[in-house]
Amino acid sequence: MSAERPAPTVLVEAGGEPWSRVEPLLDRRTEEIDGPVVIEVVTADPGVRAALRAWCHRRRAVMEVTATHRGATAFRIRVGAPGARAVAEEDG
């Protein structure tokens, strides 16, 4: 059974940008929006994966890997989701 996913509230196509440039953008976007936020981050920087995991853990957000294609990985993050208790991540 496949549940339809809502469109992301925020889409961050980070390319090869390092975490030091991605983090302030995620912080700013989550602060600007009231209520639950669904963020999709697409990155080719391998260092962003571990950093995203820690970022999600601090915010009690749920993260999953949604796609990997041509060296880029897409992550779907739910911030402020009801019942969010831990970071969830599936490796494909």
Score class of each variant (00 low, 15 high):
Leu26Gly: 02
Pro36Cys: 14
Arg60Glu: 07
Glu4Trp: 14
Pro82Asn: 12
Gly15Ser: 13
Val41Met: 02
Val41Thr: 02
Val48Asn: 08
Ala61Thr: 10
Ala50His: 15
Glu23Gly: 00
Thr43Asn: 06
Ala54Asn: 04
Val62Ile: 08
Ile77Cys: 07
Thr68His: 02
Arg78Tyr: 11
Val37Cys: 12
Arg49Glu: 13
Thr9Trp: 10
Ala72Lys: 14
Asp27Phe: 09
Thr43Ile: 06
Trp19Gln: 01
Leu52Tyr: 04
Glu17Val: 03
Arg85Phe: 06
Ala14Asp: 05
Arg59Lys: 06
Arg59Ile: 01
Gly71Tyr: 11
Pro18Cys: 04
Arg5Val: 15
Gly35Ser: 13
Asp45Gly: 13
Val79His: 05
Gly71Trp: 08
Pro8Leu: 15
Val42Tyr: 09
Phe75Gln: 01
Asp34Gln: 09
Ala74Phe: 05
Met63Leu: 14
Asp34Ala: 12
Val22His: 01
Cys56Glu: 03
Ala44Trp: 05
Arg78Phe: 11
Cys56His: 04
Arg60Trp: 05
Ala72Asp: 11
Glu32Pro: 01
Gly83Glu: 08
Val62Arg: 09
Leu52Gly: 02
Val38Pro: 09
Met63Ser: 07
Ala72Val: 11
Ala14Lys: 06
Leu25Asn: 02
Val48Trp: 03
Trp19Ser: 00
Gly15Pro: 13
Asp45Pro: 09
Ala86Tyr: 11
Leu25Tyr: 03
Ile77Tyr: 07
Arg60Asp: 05
Glu64Trp: 02
Glu31Tyr: 04
Arg53Pro: 01
Glu40Trp: 08
Gly15Cys: 12
Pro6Asn: 12
Pro18His: 01
Gly35Lys: 12
Glu4Phe: 13
Ala14His: 04
Arg29Gln: 10
Val42Trp: 09
Trp55Asn: 00
Pro6Asp: 12
Arg49Tyr: 13
Arg58Ile: 00
Met63Gln: 04
Gly47Ala: 15
Thr66Val: 14
Arg21Leu: 00
Glu23Cys: 00
Ile33Trp: 02
Arg29Ser: 07
Phe75Thr: 03
Trp19Ala: 00
Glu40Arg: 10
Ala7Thr: 08
Asp45Thr: 11
Glu64Tyr: 01
Pro24Phe: 04
Ala54Glu: 13
Ala67Phe: 12
Ala7Pro: 04
Leu25Pro: 01
Arg29Phe: 07
Leu11Met: 15
Asp45Trp: 05
Glu4Ser: 15
Pro46Ala: 13
Pro46Glu: 14
Ala7Asn: 07
Thr9Gly: 12
Thr9Val: 14
Thr68Tyr: 00
Arg60Asn: 08
Glu17Lys: 14
Arg76Ser: 11
Arg21Lys: 03
Gly83Ile: 08
Val41Ala: 02
Gly15Ile: 13
Leu25Gln: 06
Ile77Lys: 06
Gly15Tyr: 10
Ala50Gly: 15
Thr43Cys: 10
Ile33Glu: 03
Arg78Lys: 14
Ala81Phe: 07
Thr30Lys: 02
Arg58Lys: 07
Gly35Phe: 11
Arg76Gln: 08
Arg76Tyr: 03
Ala51His: 02
Phe75Val: 01
Arg59Gln: 05
Val65His: 04
Val42Ile: 14
Pro8His: 10
Val10Ser: 10
Ala7Leu: 10
Arg21Ile: 00
Val48Cys: 08
Gly80Tyr: 05
Ala44Gln: 14
Ala54His: 08
Thr30Val: 09
Arg53Asn: 06
His69Ser: 10
Ala81Arg: 15
Asp45Gln: 07
Ala14Gln: 06
Ala14Trp: 04
Met63Val: 02
Val22Asp: 01
Val22Lys: 00
Trp19Asp: 00
Thr73Pro: 05
